[in-house]
Amino acid sequence: MHAVKQTMILGVTAVLMMLAASLCFGAGIPDKVSIGDIQKYYAPVDFNHAAHINSLKDCGLCHHHTTGAQVADPNCARCHKNSGAQPVVSCKGCHVAEPFTPEALKQQRDQHPPIYHRDKPGLKAAYHVSCLGCHQKMGGPTGCQDCHTRNDSGDALFKSGKYAPKAPAKPQAAHH
């Protein structure tokens, strides 16, 4: 009788824990993410997180080992096979916006152990290398403005749109 009671308590606790975990997990996963922290020449990206989860079903492809999913890169798996979920899972939690400041360079240099996490891309490259790399492989959109439209200062930088070089002044350019 005592054993049955204990089993029941354990079972209920387990169910409650799973429920709590799934609730917390579910609540923590955004359906949409507006990526706009480092935008200067483009409008923010309205990233449809839910659609990507549905089509990929593998968090590890983008989040490495941080969500507790099996990590895709065998190099990472050597240490992080059983690391479990980490408190930080967002890209900007680890990838810094300015990877080449003297402080950031020193931090990468002093990384321990001095093997992994040293060649960590900055935030902008983390997005682009990961997103674009996958889009190229899986046939997703790959044009710059397929994901983020260029804003006015972007047009000014690229000398495009209303800032385009005046064709009459460059007669040769008009034929190209």
Binding site: L157, F158, K159, P165, K170, A173
Partner: peptide, 29 residues
């Protein structure tokens, strides 16, 4: 890693205050 977006050319032009290019920097021709 390079995807040929020519952003570097555009940034160089602005930073070094170089003359206007013949074609926009997003022109892949």
């Amino acid at each position: 890693r390079c995807v040929g977006c020519r952003s570097c050319e555009a940034a160089c032009n602005a930073e070094q205050k170089l003359p206007e290019p013949d074609l926009p920097f997003d022109d892949t021709s």
